[in-house]
Structure formats: structure tokens, C-alpha cells
């Protein structure tokens, strides 16, 4: 297929610690940890493509490096090495976005990316009103017209089913599911082509989880936004993702069509994961 990826990730590596002669380059590790110097190799040579309009699932156990990878992609933490390309932006074609200035990174974050964290505290200002939270992101993306921003905020909050009469309320008064929906509205407010979702349904009860999943699926269908969905929950991945990557100890061990990963897993760890599914 002559289809160009929206986001290309190449050899993304994130390590915590200085590395030593024993573990340099990821040798002699216990899982992702060097017993000699204590360096943690959170992500090792992660490479993948994200295509327009698709939901890419990333599954793996706690500590497999999923969230570290998302934080690097969203510039929340510094990568150790590796590259990300956003070739659909003419000015950035062929350029590694990790090597850009912090100002340029901020612009990418504000205009190209949306992020929904597992913990709404990370994505929302809990003592700002919900409308104010969205306005904050809109201002960061360059909006200045108060009337417009209020209108956009209202329509977004309505889209994620926050009742109109509660829109001026602070998210700290909301339930977990509502907070997560406000966070999704905020992440969508600058119309980003790429949305990162990090364990967004973890900790929500089943019916609320189904609501959030419906919302995400609807956003993909109606707005055509590409998403990377990180979850340890195979059921969530099965409902959302077309393609899935399996991570273990900081590396990608398997990738494929989601139903193939579930029905014909190849790697020993993926098999264990799938066979554990209730």
C-alpha cells in the first residue's frame, strides 16, 4: 500500500541511570535492569509507524515500558536516543522531532498532539473550571478570542457528555469517569491529528469504562484522529485497536493485527498473557 505513516518512531530508547561497562547497550540485564550499576532500560529500540485514522494498541505488563514510551513521545521526559518523524508537516519532513528546540517541541505538543493520562490529575488543573481547563489548552494552541473558546469548550464538553450546568465546575468535584471525559475533551480541543491515551480506562468500573471506550471509538470514526492506546487490559485493546504491539521489559516482542495477536500469539509471553484472559 502506498500509504504514508503519520508518525514514525525509530529506535526510541529510554534509560534511567548512567549504564556501566557490564550493561552498556542493553547487555547482561535482569529483565530491564542492570544488577551491576542499577541502570533501568525502560525502552529499548522501539520502532513502529502510526497511520492516519488508525488506533494502535500497545499492551504489556506493568513495568514493560509502555508509559515511559508515551512520556517520551509527548516530550514529558527526555529520550536517551532515537527519533520520531512527523512527515505530514512539510517543515518537519525528515527531521527528528526529538532534536528540535524546546519551543518547537512545545508547538508540536500544542498543535499536533493530545494526551490523556491514566491519572486525571496529570492532565487537568483540578481547581480550574472544566471550561477553563479547555481554554488553557486552546490558549496554548494560539487562540485568543474568549467567546470562541467558550463555545468550543462547551461543544467539546457536550460531546463527552458533561451536562451543561456542570461545565463551570472544577473537575475535582467530578467522579473518575467524568474527570477522564473532561481530560479527553481537553486533549481534543486543539483538533490534534494524533492522540495518546495512557491506560485511560484503568480504575474505572465496567459501565463507565464502556462509556469511555464508546467515546474513543466514536472520536476515531467521526474525526479520523490517529491514536496510540496503551493498556495492560487486552479486552480494552481488543475493543479499540486495529493493530497491536506487545511490549516486555522495554522491548517490542510481537506486533500484528489485534485479532491475530489474540487468536494466534507467537511469543511465549504473549501466549501467557492471552491464555490468562478471562
Amino acid at each position: 500500500m502506498h500509504e504514508a505513516p503519520l508518525l514514525r518512531v525509530r529506535d526510541l530508547t529510554k534509560q534511567f541511570g548512567e549504564a556501566c561497562s557490564s550493561c552498556d547497550g542493553g547487555e547482561n540485564l535482569e529483565k530491564n535492569y542492570c544488577p551491576t550499576c542499577g541502570t533501568v532500560y525502560a525502552c529499548q529500540n522501539i520502532s513502529f509507524d502510526l497511520y492516519p485514522g488508525e488506533i494502535l494498541g500497545i499492551v504489556g505488563e506493568s513495568g514493560s515500558g509502555k508509559s515511559s514510551m508515551m512520556q517520551c513521545l509527548y516530550f514529558d521526559s527526555e529520550v536517551t536516543s532515537g527519533a520520531v518523524y512527523l512527515d505530514h508537516i512539510p517543515a518537519l519532513a525528515g527531521k527528528n522531532v526529538f532534536a528540535l528546540s524546546s519551543q518547537q517541541k512545545r508547538a508540536i505538543r500544542n498543535q499536533q498532539y493530545g494526551m490523556v493520562y491514566q491519572n486525571p490529575i496529570r492532565g487537568l488543573k483540578m481547581d480550574f473550571s472544566s471550561v477553563g481547563n479547555i481554554a488553557e489548552k486552546l490558549i496554548a494552541a494560539g487562540n485568543r478570542h474568549v467567546g470562541d473558546m467558550e463555545a468550543v469548550s462547551k461543544s467539546l464538553l457536550e460531546h463527552v457528555h458533561i451536562p451543561l450546568f456542570r461545565m463551570k465546575e472544577e473537575p475535582r468535584n467530578f467522579s473518575g469517569g467524568m474527570q477522564q471525559r473532561v481530560q479527553i475533551a481537553k486533549a481534543l480541543s486543539n483538533n490534534p491529528p494524533i492522540l495518546f491515551l495512557d491506560e485511560v480506562t484503568t480504575g474505572l468500573d465496567l459501565s463507565v469504562q464502556a462509556n469511555v471506550l464508546d467515546l474513543i471509538k466514536g472520536i476515531q470514526r467521526d474525526l479520523g484522529i490517529s491514536m496510540i492506546v496503551v493498556s495492560h487490559d487486552l479486552a480494552v485493546i481488543r475493543m479499540l485497536a486495529d493493530r497491536t504491539i506487545v511490549m516486555l521489559n522495554g522491548s517490542i516482542i510481537e506486533d500484528g493485527l489485534t485479532d491475530q495477536i489474540l487468536e494466534d500469539p507467537q511469543h511465549a509471553y504473549t501466549q501467557q498473557l492471552v491464555y490468562s484472559l478471562l
Binding site: G256, L257, D259, Q260, E263, D264
Partner: peptide, 9 residues
């Protein structure tokens, strides 16, 4: 059948 649909490799 599943291999044709690529649910199996």
C-alpha cells in the same frame, strides 16, 4: 479459513 483472513499466521 482463519489463515486466509489472517487471524492466524
Amino acid at each position: 479459513l482463519k489463515s486466509i483472513y489472517r487471524s492466524y499466521l
